[in-house]
């Protein structure tokens, strides 16, 4: 039946660790996760490893197998040579918890920062009508099982911890693309958000995310590049600008919605004004983007900067004049008291 195979599994925690050798039995038709389970049941009961579905559906069992980011439950042992040593390590991009388990909080933080779906104001539940061809693109991205392999392999954060602050990673680029392509999403500034807040510009489209995605989502071709192109539409393309001027009715401006909210994270609707008419609970548009370089200075020359003209001191996300609805100021209706 089974044969003995040589496994090297990384064991340790934040204080250090190393690859430990195991000889373990492997049967026909098994996957790497089965072998990890056998190790747990026989030689290493406290070997930490995440898993849930064992069917490539939940994205829990992400690990690196022979240096490649993979799902443990989707890596068949038959893909290795009989005498090949199989090396299993935790994801390298995230802080280690123990053994094969890493702290993937980074991803949840980024998820929380990505503005959510903005439902159209004029449709009640049950009134949504969408054509299959229109939802298909977004559906591709919704296949994502959040295994975070793409986040792990992306060299922008894998090799540069300091970029984690500015860079959301491919998983959240497809989320932005999904919403930007959603036929009924009422938020107009997803591309600007992707560029300014998610760090789309850090991606150099080297396609590793697409290579490792177990759901075979074409992350680069169908999400990142189209998003980059959409940013180009807005910022650089002369023909699109001209066209927009000539044909006012443009699809590019989102269907009949008011200009995007002030800040990327701003609500698309605001709480009702308080008793005194002032909307105290809304956040004032603050200079947000502060497009400064590492030294905290605004770039002086257009040449070295990513847009024409000097950057606005109010940040990238605020356009003037501010829509009156969004102002904190409330005009007094009492006369000269």
């Amino acid at each position: 039946m089974g044969t003995k195979r040589h496994f090297r599994v990384w064991r340790g925690d934040e204080n250090g660790g190393d690859l430990q050798d195991y000889q373990v039995e492997v049967n026909e038709g098994e996957v790497v996760l089965d072998v990890i389970h056998r190790l747990q049941a026989t030689q290493a009961p406290d070997l930490a490893c995440r898993w849930n579905c064992k069917a490539g559906k939940c994205g829990s069992c992400s690990m690196e197998i022979n240096g490649r980011p993979r799902l443990g439950c989707m890596t068949r042992m038959s893909t290795f040579e009989e005498n090949e040593t199989v090396t299993v390590t935790p994801l390298r991009t995230f802080p280690i918890v123990r053994d094969l388990v890493t702290d993937v909080e980074f991803n949840y933080v980024k998820a929380r920062e990505t503005p959510a779906f903005a439902p159209p104001a004029d449709l009640e539940p049950g009134e949504y009508r969408m054509q299959q061809v229109d939802v298909e693109r977004s559906q591709e991205f919704r296949k994502c099982i959040e295994c975070f392999l793409c986040q792990n392999v992306c060299h922008v954060v894998r090799d540069h911890e300091e970029n984690k602050r500015a860079f959301s990673g491919p998983r959240y680029f497809i989320r932005a693309a999904e919403l930007d392509m959603h036929p009924l999403d009422a938020k107009g500034d997803r591309k600007e958000y992707a560029q300014a807040q998610q760090g789309l510009g850090y991606c150099n489209i080297t396609k590793c995310c697409t290579e490792v995605c177990p759901e075979h989502i074409k992350i680069t071709d169908n999400a990142i590049i189209p998003m980059k192109e959409r940013v180009v539409d807005r910022r650089y393309d002369p023909i699109v600008k001209l066209g927009r001027r000539i044909f006012r009715r443009d699809q590019l401006e989102e269907q009949g919605t008011r200009p995007g909210p002030l800040l990327a994270q701003e609500p698309s609707h605001h709480a009702e004004p308080g008793a005194d008419g002032v909307k105290w609970n809304r956040q004032v548009a603050q200079g947000q983007a502060a497009a400064v370089d590492e030294n905290g200075r605004l770039p002086l020359s257009e040449f070295t900067f990513d847009r024409a003209a000097a950057p606005s001191p109010f940040g990238d996300d605020v356009t003037f004049p501010l829509p009156p609805d969004d102002l904190n100021y409330h005009h007094s209706n009492k006369w000269d008291t």
């Binding site: 340790g12 022979n66 490649r68 390298r92 991009t93 280690i96």
Partner: peptide, 11 residues
């Protein structure tokens, strides 16, 4: 992160 020195473990 996990203490692995190798630049890659790809084989």
């Amino acid at each position: 992160r996990a203490a692995i020195l190798a630049k890659t473990l790809r084989t």
